[in-house]
Computed example of a mutant assay.
Amino acid sequence: MSLTLADARIVTPEGVHEGWLTIEDGRITHVGHGSAPRPGHGLGGRHVVPGFVDMHNHGGAGGSFPAGEPDGAREAVALHQRHGTTTMVASLVTDSLDRLSRAAASLAELCDDGLLAGIHFEGPYISKARCGAHDPALLREPSPQEVAGLIKAGRGHVRMLTIAGELPGALDTIRMAAAEGVIAALGHSDASYDRTLAGIEAGATVATHLYNAMPQLGHRAPGPIAALLQDERVTVELINDGVHVHPAMLTLACEVAGPGRTALITDSISATGLSDGEYLLGPMRVGVVGGVARLVDGGSIAGSTLTMDVAFRRSVQELGLSLPDAAQVASLTPARVLGLADQVGSIAVGKSADLVVLSDELEVAGVMRRGAWIAEPR
C-alpha cells in the first residue's frame, strides 16, 4: 500500500522545504520538493517532523514502567505515542534486585512486540548523596557480575544503565556494560571532574539528565557537568519542562554540546496525562501539584509530567532552536545514541515512516508510526 503526504513543510537535517513524501510498506520511499506528482493526503502546509525518540521515560496515563505491569505499560506507550513519541525506552528506578529483574523480564515482552525500544536501569547503582527520588535504603555498589544478571533478565533488551562513576566497582561495571552493548550513562553522581573523566574513559557515553542529581558547576571544582559537556564522546540528556533546569542553562548546554550531542528526554512518570494527585514511582510516593512531581516525603523533584511534543515546542519557542535543530535533539540524536539512527530519527528515504504533523503553533495535529496513523490529521 502506497500513501503520499502532500502540501507539507518537511523538516529534515538539511532544512525545511515545501514538498511531499511517499510511504510504502511502512517506510519512506520518496521525499520531494514542490507539488506532489500524484494526488495524496494534503496536510495544508503544516510541518512534518520525525517521530520523537524518548530514551528516558518512566510511564504515563497511570502506567508505570517500574511496576512491570504490561497493561499499564501499554497505556503509557499509547499516551506518549499520541504526543508524537514513536520510539521509547522504558526506564526503571531503584528497587530490589528481584523486583528489577521481574520488571525487566515483563517489559522485555513489550520490546519483543516492538512497543518499546529497550529498558533503562536508572539505579540502584547511584550516589546516596544525589539519589533524588530514589530510595536510599535500596542503593547498592555496582559489580559486573550483578549487573550482568540484570542484563540477562532483560533478554537482550537492556539499552542503558545509569551509574555513579565514583562508586567502588563503577569503572569495571562501565567497561562490562559497554562490552555487552549496553549504554553506560553517568548520573545521580557526586563525582569530581577527574572521576567523571575516568568514567568516560571507561566507556560511559551519556549524561543522565544533565544538571539534575549532580553537583553544580564550580569555577574551582567544576564537577561532572563540565566534564560531561566538554567531552565529545558524551551525549547529554536535558529535561526541558520549565521546572528541572533554567532555560539559560539549557541554552548553555545546547551551545556547548551542539544538537549532535544533546538529547531531549521527558523523565515522565505515571502521572503524565492525568490530574494532580498522589502516584508511585517504583517504591516511592510522589505528589503532583500543578503538574510538578515531588516526593511526598522530602520534596525532591520526582521525574516529570512532560511529553516530548511540549519539550520540542519549548525548545523552539523559548530556547530559540531552529526546527531542524529541535528535530535533531528530539529525534535524531537520541536515535543515534540508541543505535537506531538507520531506522528512525529523521525523515529520509528508507527509514521508518515515523512522523509527527505539527500546526503553525507546533501543536500535534497528527502522528504516524511505521506508516500507520495513530492520530490522523484532518
Rank of each mutant, 00 (worst) to 15 (best):
G169K: 01
A170Q: 05
L171K: 11
M176W: 13
M176D: 11
A177Y: 05
A178D: 10
G181Q: 06
V182A: 01
A184G: 07
A184V: 13
A185G: 02
L186Y: 09
G187S: 00
H188T: 03
H188Q: 08
S189E: 08
D194E: 15
D194P: 07
I200P: 01
G203Y: 02
A204M: 12
T205F: 00
A207L: 04
A207C: 06
A207P: 04
P215W: 06
H219R: 13
R220F: 11
A221Q: 15
P222F: 01
P224G: 09
I225G: 03
Q230L: 14
E232T: 13
V234N: 09
V236S: 00
L238N: 05
H244G: 03
V245T: 06
V245L: 05
P247D: 11
P247Y: 14
L250I: 09
T251N: 15
L252K: 07
C254E: 10
A257V: 14
A257G: 15
R261I: 10
T262P: 09
A263M: 01
D267C: 06
A271T: 01
A271F: 00
T272Q: 05
D276G: 03
G277F: 11
E278N: 13
L281Q: 04
M284N: 11
V289F: 13
V292T: 11
G299M: 04
G299L: 09
T307Q: 14
M308I: 08
M308P: 08
M308G: 06
M308Q: 12
D309A: 09
V310M: 15
V310W: 14
F312C: 09
R313E: 11
